[in-house]
Amino acid sequence: MVDDESFYINVLVDLLREQYRVTVAKSGQQALSRVSSEIPPDLILLDILMPEMDGYEVCKQLKADPCTVDIPVIFLTVKSEVDDEIRGFQLGAVDYITKPMSPPLVLSRVKTHLALSQTRRILKNQNQLLEERVRERTHEISRTQDVAIFCLASLAETRDNETGNHIRRTQHYIQLLANHLKAYPRFQKTLNNEYIDLLFKSAPLHDIGKVGVADKILLKPGKLDPAEWEEMKRHAQYGFDALLRAEQELGSTAFLQLAREICLTHHEKWDGTGYPNGLIGEAIPLSGRLMALADVYDALITSRVYKEAFSHETAVEMIREERGRHFDPEVVRAFLDLEDSFQAVANRFTE
């Protein structure tokens, strides 16, 4: 209760103290000091006409402070003009009690606004609890999806004598490239944080179509003959088709759209000599152009049944030579800027 007149203080204290614990302040500054230094009150009865700092200013400062903004304020005043009431409500007051005061009215207003305030706090706490549970559940679902994606991709890779580390490495390579290229004007529109996150999550599925390739081809230790090579190249289409069927059954999502885009286009080449559709230049989606370089770099530095691993330095030179032929020149430029980071990822997720 904030009032500079002892008469009204005594009246209100006598009226309220049987039901409530009442703290008194005799000036606006004293009220602000006590509110900030003690347990915050559940309700403030605030006189408007006080010397030095009037009730309007006190209310304004209370509502500007995050610690006190939710405390309900009832103005006590001899003023009864509509403009005065409008000003008080605009500042955040919840009610007016006009002097001289009716005791039953005071008790009723205090009881009502304390109940409303308590209800708001309960709802706020419930909302915060619900939001936290939603966040936890969303995180749980996201983690479950990530595990499912990783397991599915790992199954495809292990059929090709590769490991889950190939998935991890290519995920991080493509993330490095995307984060670097998002500063380039040419890529700023596409490479926002949401897209890069989806790119990171969908990259492991780039070779999921290998599950459709026969073992005698997929695991052949020597060079494939022309017919075998044609069958091997179909894995890009197999992966695209499988994810398209998933979309048709379960509904389309940005993740599935990007995943099938990567499946289909990560073997396309900048000069149009890639597969399955011979796309040229920027007709190849950005996701496919990024995945192409990430996948080739990892293939070069990794031992396969049909080849020994190249050194990082040799792999870098081979990719540099393919700038403008196999790879988007700007993507190669980014790779060259990041080659130390690529090597660090390769070392981190080594076989």
Rank of each mutant, 00 (worst) to 15 (best):
D4F: 03
Y8K: 05
Y8S: 12
I9H: 03
D14P: 07
L15Y: 10
R17S: 02
A25M: 01
A31T: 08
P41E: 12
D47F: 11
L49T: 13
V58G: 00
C59G: 00
L62M: 04
K63N: 06
P66L: 02
C67R: 09
T68C: 02
L76A: 02
S80T: 06
V82M: 05
G88E: 05
Q90S: 13
A93P: 00
V106A: 01
S108L: 04
S117E: 11
T119K: 11
K124N: 09
K124H: 08
E132K: 10
R137D: 10
I149P: 00
L155T: 07
A156S: 14
E157D: 12
T158S: 04
E162R: 15
H166P: 00
R169L: 08
N179E: 15
L181I: 07
A183H: 15
F187K: 05
N193R: 11
G209W: 13
V213S: 02
L218T: 15
E230I: 14
K233G: 09
R234S: 03
R234E: 10
H235T: 12
L243E: 04
E247W: 08
E249H: 12
T253E: 04
A254I: 04
A259G: 03
K269P: 12
Y275F: 07
G288S: 00
M291W: 00
A299T: 14
I301G: 07
T302E: 06
S303D: 15
S303N: 14
F310R: 09
T314W: 03
A315Q: 12
E317S: 09
I319L: 10
E322L: 11
F327V: 09
F327M: 03
P329V: 08
E330T: 11
V331I: 15
F335G: 07
E339T: 02
S341I: 09
